[in-house]
Design a protein around this nucleic acid. Sequence first.
DNA 1: GCTTTTTAGCCCG
DNA 2: CGGGCTAAAAAGC
Length: 143
Amino acid sequence: MNCQSFETECGYICVYEKDGYVTRIEFNKRCNGKIKQDIAIQIEEYLQGKREKLEFDVIFSGTEFQKKVWTSLKEIPYGQTVTYKQLSEKLKTSPRAIGQALRTNPLPIYFPCHRVVAKNSIGGFNGGVQFKKMLLKIEGCEF
DNA sequence: GCTTTTTAGCCCG
DNA sequence: CGGGCTAAAAAGC
C-alpha cells in the first residue's frame, strides 16, 4: 500500500494507492510515501484547477445502496451542485439516507460528494467543511 | 428477522 | 434561529 499527501490551503489530503488502483482518499492526514506518478499528477492538476476529470482506476467496497449513491455522484458535472433532496428524489430515497451514505464515501473528490449541498446551507463534510468549500472554490463554485 | 438508534436534511412558525 | 418531524440505513439484538 502506497500513500502520498498533497498540501492545500486547508491542510493535507492523503491518497492511498495499491497496484495502480486508488483505494482511499482522506483529509487532514499526512504521510511521506509516493503513489503512482500519473495518479499524483492528476490529483495535483485537479487541485490547481487545471483538470476537471479524474481518470484512474479505483477499488472500494460498500453496501449496494452506498455504491449506488457514490457512483451516481460521477454524473454531477464539474462545477455544479445538487441538493441532498434532489439526489434523493432521483434515487427514490430520503435526503438523510443520502447524507448517511456520503459520509462513508471512501473516495471523496473522485466521487464528488462535495458537489452535494443542503438546500439552504453547504451541508456537512467528512473531512471538515473547510475542505468542501475549498473544493467547490477550485471548481469555480462560490458558496 | 425485527427493533432501536442515528443521521452531512427539511419545514414551519 | 429553534424545535419538531421525518424516512431510511445501519447497528444491535
